[in-house]
């Protein structure tokens, strides 16, 4: 069966991987010239943190997200299994208590444990939570490696091509265009995230650190060689093209609050993009004739793409099936 996948972000490449592994004849068509151009996955944090996300996300995110770390570990070589450290300043201890109540699979981390996990933060924090089962990856390396593996396996990647000009014979189209698919999915909306990449020769963190704060929650993800991704804001908007002064102040101010040594870090990059989301912020597979839409990964692209790709394959392999994230199951899950 010949399958055309539109879009080369995390959804498209993950679906392409799953379909080609199941023996489908896969072609990827993407508007962007290079992997990552025009794709919000390029600006992802790359945290594989299903339990932490449970603080605000719905149950399926926590459960389905647990597939992610193993999937990525099998497909790319940039996965770190170092867990997640969640901290708060003493003044904001209530935030930590709340986070602890709302999440599972964590261990209390006192000053000594924090110092053992992240020596650079020793003495600065007395209360935290450690999520040992979580991990992170470098999203850009991961996307490039997936694309490379697909090419080697004979999957055609037609980058820089508009779908209507691609003229491909295929039996089924998997539409993974993200927010660009709003023309076909009117209930899709953009939620902007802003991020900053900094590099510090002084700070050495081994794992994603989340600093809770009543107004400005922050996460910092190590990217290797002293680079850190600092994120991320959540703004109900899809129009921003550049980071705002306010967000820059908030993000960098929080990084400084985590470790004042970040003051000497250099700013490598700022990034802004809008992530596609449905009204319940859960991803969805929607069948329309010979097209299967896979979309709405929201802030959980790398976390949920493996599960949603698996379900897309199920939906195609057995057309009578309705995997959990198919539209058909949406009302049932809502009332459950």
């Amino acid at each position: 069966m010949r399958i055309t996948i539109i879009g080369a972000g995390v959804a498209g490449l993950t679906c392409a991987t799953e379909f080609s592994e199941q023996g489908f004849d896969v072609t990827i068509v993407a508007r962007s010239e290079h992997i990552g151009d025009d794709s919000c996955s390029w600006y992802a944090g790359g945290m594989l943190a299903p339990w932490c996300e449970g603080e605000s996300a719905e149950e399926p995110v926590v459960r389905l997200g647990q597939e992610a770390i193993g999937w990525w570990d099998r497909h790319v070589d940039c996965v770190e299994r170092q867990g997640t450290l969640v901290l708060s300043h003493t003044r904001d201890a209530a935030e930590l208590r709340r986070f602890s109540r709302r999440t599972s699979a964590h261990e209390a981390a006192d000053a000594e444990r924090i110092a053992a996990l992240e020596p650079d933060l020793a003495g600065r924090f007395r209360h935290g939570l450690f999520f040992p089962g979580e991990g992170h990856l470098d999203p850009r390396k991961a996307l490039e490696q997936l694309a490379e593996t697909l090419r080697r396996r004979g999957v055609r990647l037609q980058l820089g091509t508009e779908m209507d000009k691609a003229a491909i014979q295929s039996d089924l189209t998997i539409d993974c265009r993200g927010l660009a698919a709003k023309d076909a999915l009117p209930d899709l909306r953009g939620v902007t995230g802003e991020m900053i990449v900094i590099r510090s020769s002084e700070v050495n963190l081994h794992r994603p650190v989340r600093l809770l704060h009543p107004r400005i929650p922050l996460y910092i993800v190590p990217r290797g060689n002293g680079a850190y991704m600092v994120g991320a804001t959540m703004i109900e908007s899809d129009a921003s093209r550049r980071i705002s002064v306010r967000s820059t102040l908030e993000l960098l101010g929080s990084a400084f609050a985590l470790d004042p040594a970040f003051a000497e870090a250099e700013i490598l990059e700022t990034g802004v993009d809008a992530r596609p989301a449905f009204p319940d912020n859960l991803p969805r597979i929607r069948r329309r004739g010979q097209t299967l839409y896979v979309n709405g990964l929201y802030r959980h692209g790398f976390l949920l793409a493996p599960a949603i790709a698996r379900m897309a394959v199920e939906a195609v392999t057995d057309p009578t099936s309705t995997p959990e994230m198919m539209d058909e199951n949406y009302p049932e899950r809502q009332s459950a």
Binding site: R189, G190, T192, I235, E236, S237, D238, A239, S240, S244, P279
Partner: peptide, 16 residues
């Protein structure tokens, strides 16, 4: 202000 960013970007949320 905060929810919408600039340039009328919050249209989707406002529609909601």
């Amino acid at each position: 202000r905060r929810e919408s960013g600039r340039e009328r970007g919050g249209q989707d949320f406002w529609a909601l």
